[in-house]
């Protein structure tokens, strides 16, 4: 019996040779338990060693292997050939990011944004060792827990047309993380982060498309984080007229 195969079309781009990306098709042996990442690894090991892509854990926690699979942002380790077969698998670099080479994107912009949101707990009043640990109730944990599941895989950015149209926008992932720290009872820096939330780069670029929350592989709801911050930013904006505090920083 002939071995079953599946066609994988990969968007290739070699900055040293190509003016623009082009698709290249590969025939890969198909089995029921193979992920798209495994198919790419097969191509790299057996068919074409020049193919470049990022991957690490193979179990949907490192966030490295995000790519467009048949037009949707997906983790390639978590997307199975059996769900696409016998159709062709079309693999492209994540939308809205510049392509470095093949499936590898330039993510400097996201890293810069991640730094700008101050993604760490900044306590309002630091506790000394003698004072002991910060205590938190289950209800307080509930407020931010889902947002702490983010693995920085960038699928939500590839799902966000507003980020694609205006890369100045801080974007869903970083804003979800910003909200994760703002909503943490141990953190006291939401006023500091407000400057960025309410800025022209901030939450008001979002038009509630909502696709970011659909594609998140870790069930984070970035759209909700962004829109909750619209409400607080608007409140803060109107309050600032009521009690002038001199010029803002």
């Amino acid at each position: 019996m002939a071995e079953k195969t599946i066609t994988i079309k990969v968007l290739r781009y070699n900055p040293e040779q190509d003016q623009a990306p082009v698709f290249q098709a590969y025939q890969v042996p198909f089995s029921d338990d193979m992920s798209v990442l495994q198919a790419l690894l097969f191509i790299k090991d057996e068919l074409d060693e020049t193919l470049s892509f990022r991957w690490s854990c193979r179990m949907a926690i490192c966030g490295s292997c995000g790519m467009m699979i048949n037009g949707n942002p997906k983790l390639s380790c978590k997307t199975f050939l059996r769900d696409i077969y016998p159709e062709t698998v079309r693999v492209e670099a994540l939308n809205h990011f510049p392509i470095e080479r093949d499936l590898v994107v330039v993510m400097d912009d996201f890293i810069d944004k991640l730094e700008r949101i101050q993604p760490y707990i900044i306590p309002a009043a630091p506790r000394s060792l003698a004072q002991g640990e910060y205590l938190q109730t289950p209800a307080q944990l509930e407020k931010y827990e889902q947002f702490s599941s983010c693995i920085n895989c960038l699928l939500c950015y590839a799902a966000c047309p507003q980020y694609g149209l205006n890369p100045e926008f801080i974007g869903p992932g970083a804003l979800a993380l910003l909200h994760r720290y703002n909503a943490d009872s141990r953190d006291g820096a939401s006023a500091q982060r407000m400057e960025l939330v309410a800025a022209e780069e901030g939450v008001f670029n979002c038009t509630a498309v909502g696709y970011c929350s659909e594609v998140c592989p870790k069930h984070v709801d970035p759209a909700n984080a962004v829109n909750q911050n619209k409400t607080t930013a608007a409140g803060n904006y109107f309050m600032s007229f009521l009690k002038p505090r001199g010029t803002s920083k």
Partner: peptide, 12 residues
Amino acid sequence: PLKRSNAPIFWG
């Protein structure tokens, strides 16, 4: 430098 958005008026 960050410029505060005046979007809250229109968004509201």
